[in-house]
Simulated scan of single mutants.
Amino acid sequence: MNATVLVIEDSTSIRVALTAALTDAGHRVIAREDGARLEHDLHEFAPDVVLLDVMLPGSDGFTLLDVVRRRSDAGIMMVTARDAVADRLHGLTEGADDYITKPFEMAELVARVGAVLRRRGAHTDLLYVDDLVIDQDQGVATRAGTPLALTPTEFRVLCFLAQRRDRVVTKTQILTGVWGYDHYDPNLVEVNVSALRRKLEAHGPRLLQTERGRGYTLRPAAPDAAGAATAAGRS
């Protein structure tokens, strides 16, 4: 289940942990420390779910809840240390879909985000990596708005990597995950990865990175490595 989640949380440690947990679950995450850019973010990213801390600098979470309800059809989860029944009832009666109090287990929060998505019937088959958008349901991928002409196998490899974005994936893992076997010739992976990389790079900087002696990672290249990546061999 993959969705766009807007996180508004002023605690840096909690914001980073939420971003990591939700990204690891396959979601696209936009994280902010306050609601100053809320209307812009609702328009720009069209989030499927908004996680709102209640106690924020500037406008508090209950005020932002009203903005989200007026400007978006996103699901809303209130995330706060305020656990009084009156606070929970206020959030829920004003339009929040769920209310979770701190401290909480990340696994529970991720599960409850999934429950909000299911209840609201959000379209959650999209994967995002930088300017790459993959629609798993429709079987199409675009980069910078341009459709990519991928074979069915290349598309499956791309989805497998995108579902594990920012993580190193070995050739054996790709063989097992895409073809169902781990004893095929590893050259099968190299051929498809090379073709996929060429098609991705026809529309932007390198996204499919080779991790020497380890495997592959789908992520944008670091700025200081972009030039080297362009000149590097494609394997």
Score class of each variant (00 low, 15 high):
residue 67 V to W: 01
residue 54 V to N: 10
residue 41 D to M: 11
residue 53 D to Y: 07
residue 37 R to V: 03
residue 37 R to L: 13
residue 32 R to D: 07
residue 59 S to T: 11
residue 64 L to Y: 07
residue 33 E to I: 04
residue 11 S to L: 09
residue 28 R to I: 00
residue 12 T to S: 08
residue 50 V to T: 10
residue 32 R to V: 07
residue 11 S to M: 08
residue 16 V to N: 01
residue 27 H to Q: 08
residue 13 S to P: 00
residue 68 V to D: 02
residue 27 H to D: 09
residue 55 M to C: 11
residue 52 L to A: 11
residue 52 L to V: 05
residue 44 E to N: 06
residue 59 S to V: 04
residue 58 G to R: 13
residue 25 A to Y: 02
residue 24 D to E: 14
residue 35 G to A: 09
residue 54 V to L: 15
residue 45 F to E: 15
residue 64 L to W: 03
residue 45 F to N: 12
residue 54 V to Q: 09
residue 65 L to G: 02
residue 16 V to E: 12
residue 52 L to I: 07
residue 50 V to L: 11
residue 64 L to K: 07
residue 38 L to Y: 07
residue 50 V to D: 08
residue 45 F to Y: 15
residue 50 V to M: 10
residue 62 F to N: 03
residue 45 F to L: 06
residue 58 G to S: 11
residue 14 I to F: 01
residue 64 L to S: 05
residue 63 T to S: 14
residue 12 T to D: 12
residue 29 V to I: 13
residue 38 L to I: 03
residue 31 A to C: 06
residue 33 E to C: 12
residue 56 L to W: 07
residue 35 G to I: 03
residue 41 D to S: 09
residue 18 L to P: 00
residue 19 T to Q: 14
residue 12 T to Y: 04
residue 36 A to K: 06
residue 15 R to C: 01
residue 28 R to N: 14
residue 43 H to F: 13
residue 52 L to T: 04
residue 63 T to F: 02
residue 64 L to Q: 06
residue 60 D to C: 13
residue 63 T to I: 06
residue 22 L to R: 02
residue 38 L to D: 01
residue 15 R to G: 08
residue 70 R to V: 00
residue 67 V to L: 10
residue 64 L to G: 04
residue 50 V to W: 08
residue 34 D to A: 12
residue 48 D to S: 15
residue 18 L to H: 01
